[in-house]
Nucleic acid binder design. Sequence first.
DNA 1: AAACCGAGCAACCGCTTTGAG
DNA 2: TCTCAAAGCGGTTGCTCGGTT
Length: 271
Amino acid sequence: MGRKPCCEKVGLKKGPWTAEEDKKLIDFILTQGLCCWRAVPKLAGLLRCGKSCRLRWTNYLRPDLRRGFLSEDEEKLVIELHSQLGNRWSKIASQLPGRTDNEIKNIWNSRIKKELRKMGIDPLTHKPISPTTEELHRHQQKEQQRRCMDVSCDGDEQTESDYSMGSSKTAEEEAKEKSTASPRDPAADESLSNCPEFCTDEVPMLQPHEILIPCDSSACSSSCSSASSSSSSFPRMELPESMHLWGSIDQELTWKSYQEDWKYDVFCFDC
DNA sequence: AAACCGAGCAACCGCTTTGAG
DNA sequence: TCTCAAAGCGGTTGCTCGGTT
């Protein structure tokens, strides 16, 4: 039985997109707008399935995308939203203008999750990880061993970070200990977002010149990143790598005109 | 210099939801 | 109301790259 494939996969290209493919897709969408994704590859002359085109567009080529690290505020917001919404990445992403669900998901899985665990917080429930008695016993033994080491060490100061760098498990256990020592109240989840020490030492800080200001504050207050709402101050965006090649491919369609087109006659993503 | 490892991320897969007929 | 195609979504995979051994 099984489900019908989303498209005829025979002869379709898979894997990373080339600059030329990107160009074709962008050209097509800018000139034709979005109709149905299934038709896009055929009309745009791409050997891709519609789904693949949609993904490439929404996750990479969309002109309102912000790329690069999440700011500290964004990261806090992600955590807060995740505690409310769970793994509903598209809902979370919709609250972060210029970010995609895929990007948020990747960042969550690769970084934030680990940070939370390190802090002794279960990334699934956003509650303190409660160690089993067995784990506690093991931890106590380790702690004892460590203290012995400290004493035997001739004055070598070993910082907390030294431990965490040496073994992530130790760090996790330490965090667990912290959480058991002072159990969090139910409101703890909420206060998480205000936790001043939250991974500030590990979040890569943006240099001023790297900060991309998406739009003015009034425009940003809305979660809707529609083209119309930000027409007065269109987001400054980083060019996807492939677009650096545009100049050599099509002189007419510059990034600027791309943005201008986008501003005026393309649709609202979130509406 | 080469092998290995882990992080980051783009892309794919398949299930669910939506909406038109 | 039902059916089915299309789009949306979240989980997972696999590639690349930088750091370490």
